[in-house]
Structures are given as C-alpha cells and as structure tokens.
Amino acid sequence: MLEISNLEVVYNDVILVLRGLSIPVPDGEVVALLGSNGAGKTTTARAVTGLLGVHEGDVTKGSITWKGQDITHAPPASIVKSGISQVMEGRRCFGELTVDENLATGAFTNRANQKESYDRVMELFPRLAERRDQLAGYMSGGEQQMLAIGRALMSGPELLIMDEPSLGLAPLLVQQVRDVIKEINATGTSILLIEQNAMMALSIANTGYIMENGKIVMDGDAQKLLADDDVKEFYLGLHGNDEDDEDAGRKSFKDVKHYKRKKKWAS
C-alpha cells in the first residue's frame, strides 16, 4: 500500500506545485490520476520515486509511506529496491543502448531475479524479443513505450507508476498499452496510472483521482467517475478535438472553469 498524505512540493524553494495532495494506492489495484497539463501529476510521480532533487524540488510538508515505511526523502535507488518503479513521461529510453541493455539497466537493483524478469518482459512484449540488439533510439514511439514499460518491470516492482504511457501514441497502440497494463495488474502489481486520456485510464482503474493545481478536486470509484456528467463533458470535450490541438486547449480551459464553478456549487 502506497500512501501519499497531505503532500506539499516546492520547486526552487519558491514555486509551490503540490498543495496538500493525498492519494492512497491499495495493493493490487489500479489507481488513475487524471488532470490537465501542469496540474502536478509528474511532480507527484517524481516525489514518490525520489527524483525531485534532480529538478531542484523538495517535499516541504506531508509524507509518503510505502508498506508502512516512510520513504518521503529516500534516495531513488532504495525506493526502486523497495519495490516501486516508474515508467517516466516521454518514455526516456536510453537511445544509445540496445533493447537488451536498456532492460539490463532496469534490473540494476534486481540482479538475483534478472533472468526471470527478462523472460517475463519478453513474453509480454514479443516485439522487443525480435529487436533485442537494436539501438533504442532507432525504434518507433510505440516500441519505445513498450521498452520503457519493460525496463520498469525488470526491477520486479510491486507498484508501477506510469506517467502518461499513452501520450503521443496512435489509438491502436493506446489499446495495446491498455491491455498490457491490465495484464501487468493481473499478476498482482499495483499501478498508479497517470493519464490525460481519462477514458482509457478510468476504463481499467478501480479508483480515479482528478487533480488540478496540485490538489485533488474529485475522486471516487472509476466506473462512477466514468459515468459522471462533469467528468464526461470535460474529458470528452478535451479528447473530441485531438486533431486540432489549439482548439482543444481553448476548449479545455473553458471547461475547466465551468467544471470548477459546478464543483463549488456542489460542495
């Protein structure tokens, strides 16, 4: 069980980005964390995996506990060792390394079970097996996403944090990613699924959290959120305009305001 409680994160000592964020990720579940650009989703992922320091960020309040242990200020290596791994936003494959070498880096803290993890990844992604010796930098976006997920599985995680795994992928590939996430979860791995594609994320999640300006503004059962009119309007509006990015941006902004107003009225 991962427990993010009342988390506050500040960048460069002045930019307050997370303002009292609380999210529990129960064992074995898929938790969707939704929200538009700049809401603080990636910052949340960084906080849990100990990578805030790279960005001059710091947890100033609240805590993150994992299996009962406080990991709020733990170094990334010990967090990975304790069973949390991350598929980073933008895939971040090591372009100058081969597929096999990329996977090997994922097993850096998991030497004992490297072979088992490797076989599992190859089974999950037959495509990677075909390209073992190819440089990651020359692979397509979809293949790189598979590699990024495979790499994160190499440490044998109990909790997998995935930061926008469907970003920039064609609809067919998004479906594949969705299926893979379900398959990974079916083997008992909990998943914190960060997405802007709310429909995809909620369709496989147990619980959903919607985040805005560093705070949770709505949460609940995934199916209920999926049926919720506000959520539907906001997100369908956002994703109905995929071809025209600029238009989508304007529309979402308007919808966010609309959504906030309703929310205030509701509470």
Binding site: L51, Q86, M88, R151
Partner: peptide
Amino acid sequence: RAVAFDQEAAMAQGI
C-alpha cells in the same frame, strides 16, 4: 552509458 545518456532516467532505474 545509461548515466551518460540520461542521468535522471538512470536514477529512476536505481543506478
């Protein structure tokens, strides 16, 4: 080599 290519991604692997 992973660190050389992308330090943060390498850290995320526990390196």
